[in-house]
Design a protein around this nucleic acid. Structure first.
Length: 832
DNA sequence: AAAGCAAGCTTTTTT
DNA sequence: AGCTTGCTTT
């Protein structure tokens, strides 16, 4: 009797299998959270396990929160001492205690991606590492993947000694880590990496945690990377009571190091692992599941399984096609509006999912137009907005001024007349003495290179000290309000950004929201502290803030949607090149793994829907400033036609497609008239708008392919992947590559202009020298032909001197830096 | 020092 | 297209 009777056989098996390694392959909607929570309850209530000894790890705070809530409900008592947290916050909690063992202070700060980037920028500048060929992005991603794979800077250096480019990356990696340590900061990857290092080097620490976490559960195991795998392996090494839950078909984070082999090879690593498959789905209708299955079965190298349900077939999956992307967006807004007016849906039961954040804009516009309330998840994280980061950096500086990055960010924000030169001088002084930037500020009197700005720097330090004093006597949210008032921050931000049409200023609203968030934090936390708040803030994802209470439609990427479910789901932008992304189907460095990951993403998207799924697609859309005409997504073509209902308008009959064939895109629907007709030619097709003549050649083979079976869905095992292959290789790659069209027809002159630019400015400065006689005035003490010295550009020859309204314009050919034109008053050239 | 302008890049996804 | 970045101009 009791709570366990509501579980099905497999679920029950998973709950009862408490000891030893367990792999639960949980298909989408198969009730894995229920299994996990019941398992926790079973461990505590039936096996007498101390809640203190149980750990559950998730990927998002939202998932952790939900799990905690549900465990609270079914566990009689002690639920609060179960450790439920994300990987990252787990590591932070451990490192807050032991970071000193790794040479950090325990109050280290956490850098987000932006912080890391600007730190790396400084480093590249300092050591002259970045080049045209070696992009920042590559350096950062290489370092990130090193950390994901537990490769230290030294190890990377030793492994890549020969290659000069890699040598540079190695240098960047080394210096980046040094800088982080000096700033007492860790980036996201460090949190995991350092925790593993801590365990490896400190047996006593590891053992204490092994003793504590006798039972470990990991959710979304398919998304773990190698470092996370190692972390879990170490923790579970003593008792081996490790239960991992995941679905290899939902592994969608390869780009950030997730290793699908962790789940696929679990049984190899843990030979005695119990494997349990949950295939019964409690979420969606059979039609939706069939659609999902028919897509995902085109992937190789997956654990064989198929979802099924007891519920009925349900409605067919709708496929709606539009000529232009705005039409698609209008349709979604109209459709939701209509359903809502008819009382068929609540807004909060609806989600619109898309591949890239950029796609949200059009949809948002139409939602606003139609008065449909919505919430947008993702895009720029709330905490990485400029105004929020500025204020957080004030808080960071007040809390702990060792983070140079934070201090430098705010020292002249809002403007207080402290320029780059001054900052550089202070930094130089700090570097020489190996002290922090802030400490250097405190002894500004000793910095000889700083003269004029001295008072301003002192004022800044006084202000920070005043805030610190206030921190002791007022609440944190009052402190933040005080910072905003004292610095005139609102005025500053208002001056920086113009209001939108309605006269509101989003940034000001964001600031208000930050104040409320800080107040909420103070209220909900026992012992609120500045560092506590900063830490919490550093690790939140956008999805964590989604509330179920608001009756709003949710707009988000497919990635963000993982783990969620909705009655009605719209998948927008179902086009090859959008979804799957052009990156994954590009012929150059074609990677079959990439397209499989996209397909898993499609699977995730489809399986979010409980009752109704609508796929939409635009034949033409603006992408990165260019119009693109993309074919219907291959993932839609992988769904058998008999599961689909092709309705673009209410009057469009769908019986024509009830033939079990896969649909293809050559049967077209005329939206304006509601008539349906077959297209017979290519040239007049509305896809081939002929605006650049570039997508036409690529289009041709697609039409020819109609007769062939590459879209065949009936026999997916043979045709499925060969269709993918046909796309990857068979199609002229120009189709999906925007570059050629950019270069050829419309703006050749831009290229010419840009490549001539340097020459043009050179010519200009030479021209000045020619015709212009030197005029009277506060004449410089040098003339054309003189050798002069500039503080930054070094030594050069004056090649031109021209009188302007109030100053002299001087052209110099510098030995090192080439030709420059500047004003004499600012250039401060010295004759040599 | 700060404002103004043009070039370039971006957008695949995120803790 | 829109944003950030770096360079020019004042």
């Amino acid at each position: 009797m009791g709570i366990y009777d509501t579980l099905n056989t497999e679920q029950k098996k998973a709950v009862l299998q408490t000891d030893g390694p367990v792999l639960i392959l949980a298909g989408a909607g198969s009730g894995k959270t229920r299994v996990l929570t019941h398992r926790v309850a079973f461990l505590i209530d039936e096996c007498g396990v101390n809640p203190w000894n149980i750990m559950a790890i998730t990927f998002t705070n939202k998932a952790a929160g939900e799990m905690r809530e549900r465990v609270d409900k079914i566990v009689g008592f002690g639920a609060e001492s179960i450790w439920v947290a994300t990987f990252h916050s787990t590591c932070v909690r451990i490192l807050r205690r032991y970071a000193d063992r790794l040479g950090y202070k325990n109050n280290f700060t956490i850098y987000d991606t932006d912080d890391s980037k600007s730190l790396m920028k400084d480093i590249c500048k300092k050591y002259q590492l970045e080049t045209v060929r070696l992009k920042m992005k590559r350096i950062m991603s290489t370092i990130s993947s090193c950390k994901d794979n537990l490769v230290t800077p030294d190890e990377y250096y030793l492994a890549n000694g020969g290659d000069s480019e890699k040598l540079k990356i190695s240098k960047a990696y080394t210096e980046y880590q040094n800088a982080l340590k000096n700033n007492n900061a860790m980036d996201f990857d460090d949190l995991i990496f350092n925790t593993v290092m801590l365990f490896k080097k400190n047996q006593d620490v590891l053992e204490s945690y092994q003793e504590r976490f006798k039972y470990i559960m990991v959710d979304e195991y398919q998304d773990t990377n190698n470092a996370q795998f190692e972390l879990i392996r170490l923790l579970a090494d003593k008792y081996k009571n490790l239960c991992v839950v995941g679905d290899d078909d939902q592994s969608i984070y390869r780009f950030r190091g997730a290793n699908i082999r962790n789940i696929l090879d679990f049984e190899k690593v843990y030979k005695d692992a119990e494997v349990i498959k949950l295939e019964q789905n409690y979420r969606s209708t059979q039609n939706i599941l069939d659609a999902a299955n028919s897509v995902i079965k085109n992937n190789f190298g997956r654990k064989d399984k198929a979802l099924w349900t007891d519920e009925g077939k349900g409605d067919k999956v709708r496929l709606c096609e539009f000529d232009q992307a705005p039409d698609e967006a209008s349709f979604i807004a109209d459709d939701i509006g209509k359903l809502h007016r008819n009382g068929k849906i609540k807004y909060k039961d609806v989600a619109v999912l898309y591949r890239t954040n950029a796609q949200s804009r059009l949809i948002e516009e139409k939602f606003v137009l139609n008065g449909i309330p919505y919430d947008l998840v993702g895009g720029t994280n709330f905490y990485s907005r400029r105004e929020i980061k500025d204020l957080l950096c004030y808080l960071k500086t007040i809390d702990n001024a060792v983070d140079d990055l934070a201090v430098r960010r705010i020292i002249n924000v809002p403007r207080r007349g402290i320029g780059q030169t001054t900052i550089n001088n202070v930094q130089e002084y700090a570097d020489e003495r190996q002290i922090s930037f802030y400490d250097a500020l405190c002894e500004v009197d000793n910095i000889v290179s700083v003269t004029r700005a001295t008072t301003k720097l002192k004022d800044f330090v006084v202000m920070i000290r005043a805030f610190r004093a206030k921190e002791k006597e007022m609440s944190l949210s009052d402190l933040l309000k005080d910072i905003i008032v004292t610095t005139n921050y609102i005025d500053y931000i208002k001056a920086e950004t113009e209001d939108d049409e309605s006269g509101d200023n989003d940034r000001v609203q964001n600031i208000d929201e930050l104040v409320s968030k800080l107040a909420a934090y103070e209220e909900s936390t026992d012992d609120p502290s500045l560092s506590g708040f900063l830490e919490e803030v550093a690790l939140v994802a956008d999805i964590d803030n989604v509330s179920e209470d608001d009756d709003k439609v949710l707009l988000m990427t497919l990635h963000s949607a993982k783990g969620l479910e909705f009655e009605h789901v719209y998948l927008a932008g179902m086009e090859d090149g959008v979804f799957p992304s052009y990156m994954s189907i590009e012929a150059e460095d074609y990677d079959p793994e990439a397209i499989e990951e996209e397909r898993r993403l499609a699977y995730v998207g489809i399986t979010r829907a409980k009752k109704e799924l609508t796929l939409t697609r635009a034949k033409r859309r603006m992408v990165r400033g260019e119009f693109q005409s993309n074919p219907l997504s291959r993932f839609v073509r992988e769904i058998p036609g008999n599961l689909l209902e092709r309705s673009a308008t209410e009057s469009a009959p769908s019986f024509l497609f009830d033939d079990g064939d896969s649909i293809d895109e050559f049967d077209d629907i005329d939206l304006s008239s509601g008539n349906m007709y077959r297209r017979s030619t290519t040239a007049s097709s509305s896809y081939s708008t002929g605006y650049n003549g570039y997508d036409k050649p690529g289009r041709e083979p697609m039409y020819q392919a109609k007769g062939s079976s590459i879209y065949g869905i009936g026999k997916p095992k043979e045709t499925g992947d060969s269709s993918a292959a046909s796309f990857g290789t068979g199609r002229p790659k120009a189709k999906l590559r925007p570059e050629p069209k950019r270069a050829v027809p419309d703006k050749p002159f831009i290229m010419g202009a840009s490549s001539n630019h340097a020459a043009a400015s050179k010519g200009k400065s030479l021209g000045l020298q020619k015709g212009m006689p030197a005029a009277a005035g506060t004449e410089p003490d040098y003339k054309v032909g003189d050798r002069v010295k500039h503080i930054k550009f070094g030594v050069g020859t004056v090649v031109g001197l021209e009188k302007e309204t109030r100053d002299y314009k001087v052209s110099v050919e510098f030995d090192e830096c080439g030709p420059k034109v500047m004003f004499a008053a600012f250039a401060k050239l010295k004759k040599v």
